[in-house]
Design a protein around this nucleic acid. Structure first.
Lengths: 160, 160
DNA sequence: TATTGTTATACTCTATAACTATA
DNA sequence: TATAGTTATAGAGTATAACAATA
């Protein structure tokens, strides 16, 4: 088979697998914690950040959303008590989002079901060697895409 | 590193890569043809089906959307002249969606830019061996997920 | 002047349930 | 009774542009 064809297949397999996984997760997260996938991802991203906090703009970049979209979601999560927004001491323009204890609790509550789907859906079909190869390749692709994707600030500038 | 950790990394890399790729594609498709990613995917799926036609329900399953959502998108694509809906001769309940010549034209117009992003974003970072390994693993994962994901008919039944 | 975050607004999309028609 | 597709409706989420405040 031509390599071109193999690449096309890999591309469509990536997109379909990502979409299917997200659909399954959307159900699971709603059931186990009343979260959308985006909200889960935001909390998970904060939880793994140093001290559980990140600047709003940096958070917007990792999630690939407009700033206004992030403001909307952050407001919902703040109302639910899952994160707090604090003004930064160094730069008074910026706002820092911090995950709360309650946010971490909900994350822990939701995580076992999440991991179960990952195990059943992704890795039951792969042996250890394939898992390593998949992880290596996907990380390389992700890193490459991060470079290509414009930041939220760039996207804003491009409009004017 | 523990395998568990490696799996978690692979999972998040998959989701982030898929999201980034979709964002880049959304821009490209809008620019080159005024299509959303979903609309592109629907047309592409039809184009590769035998005779360029599929039953609505089957189409809904491949794109993982509710039937009403597909009706909405199909109506838009039909208005734009990119697909046609015809009643099936065998089963008069079902409707067959068929891509039009104009739809195929638009697909061809949009495809070069699409392929360019796939090449630059995904495969520039991988050698041939990695590409094969990635395709193998992703296809195995996708096939496994297809089994786990409920069909549109199942989802409808689950509600009642 | 540029950047950060918010807000107002308008729009797209999605899902649910109810409905029609056919099997 | 079950399935296929549509429709009405209502809600969630998104992006754009305009805004205020700080750098």
């Amino acid at each position: 088979m031509a390599l071109d064809e193999r690449r096309t297949e890999a591309y469509f397999a990536l997109m379909e697998a990502g979409g299917l996984l997200q659909m399954l997760m959307e159900d699971q997260l709603q059931r186990d914690g009343g979260l959308s996938y985006l909200q889960f991802f935001l909390l998970a991203r904060l939880a793994q950040a140093p001290d559980g906090r990140m600047r709003m703009t940096d958070l917007a970049d990792t999630v690939i959303h407009s700033r206004s979209g992030l403001t909307y979601q952050a407001a919902k999560l703040e109302t639910a008590g899952l994160l707090r927004r604090e003004s930064s001491p160094h730069d008074e323009r910026s706002v820092t989002a911090a995950i709360t204890d309650q946010g971490r609790e909900l994350l822990n509550q939701v995580l076992p079901g999440h991991v179960a789907i990952v195990e059943q859906g992704m890795f039951e079909a792969l042996d250890d060697q394939q898992t390593e190869a998949l992880a290596d390749a996907l990380e390389a692709v992700r890193d490459r895409l991060r470079v290509l994707a414009p930041s939220s600030a760039q996207r804003r500038r491009n409009r004017s």
